[in-house]
Design a binder for these strands. Structure first.
Lengths: 91, 91
DNA sequence: GGTAAGTAGGGTAATTAGGGGG
DNA sequence: CGTGTCCTAATTACCCTACTTA
């Protein structure tokens, strides 16, 4: 069960992705990444989910998009059935 | 049924939310989370309430998924443990 | 009774949330 | 369309000492 349910702060995730914390917050707002809200309104992200995203688990399209192409995001359409982030409409 | 009246210490709740014990105490002081006060003045929190807050507090009882009744994850268990980090917008 | 750990309390700095505009 | 940076406001984290709990 303990798949490493450690919660990371926006700053931690931002450092992992080398982006601004604001961008991470936008991902959570867009439902692209699961987020746990504290009673105070701050967000916490699951280390396991962040790691999966870092590996490319978010896009199950690792084949055919490696070289000589500009794949914006051909069909994210969740056809792969991401078991986790089912939270779409946030607010 | 038992509401899981197990009481958790501020340190336990803080570890669950990845915050400081002081922050948990502040939540109790602000009335954001129920707290039981000991005769000495220390606080105890209900395990059931804390868990509800972690899940998003959407009163969505996801207790019915015990046996393979929902073939949702057919491949990679990306998120790992909690398959449904469905959080609710609270702000 | 005594020791160690945790918690409460106040105060200050750092981080985060939200919106707007580039 | 997505990201980085600006602002203000709110929340959180770490500092301290004293008391309660185990």
């Amino acid at each position: 069960m303990d798949t490493g349910d450690r919660l990371l702060t926006p700053g931690e995730v931002a450092a992992l992705f080398r982006v601004d914390p604001k961008t991470v917050t936008r991902w959570a707002a867009a439902g692209r990444i699961g987020s746990i809200r504290t009673p105070g309104g701050h967000r916490r992200f699951r280390e396991s989910e962040v790691r999966a995203l870092l590996e490319g688990e978010g896009m199950l399209d690792e084949v055919g998009e490696v070289a000589g192409d500009r794949p914006r995001n051909a069909g994210p359409a969740a056809t792969g059935g991401p078991p986790g982030p089912a939270n779409a409409g946030l607010y």
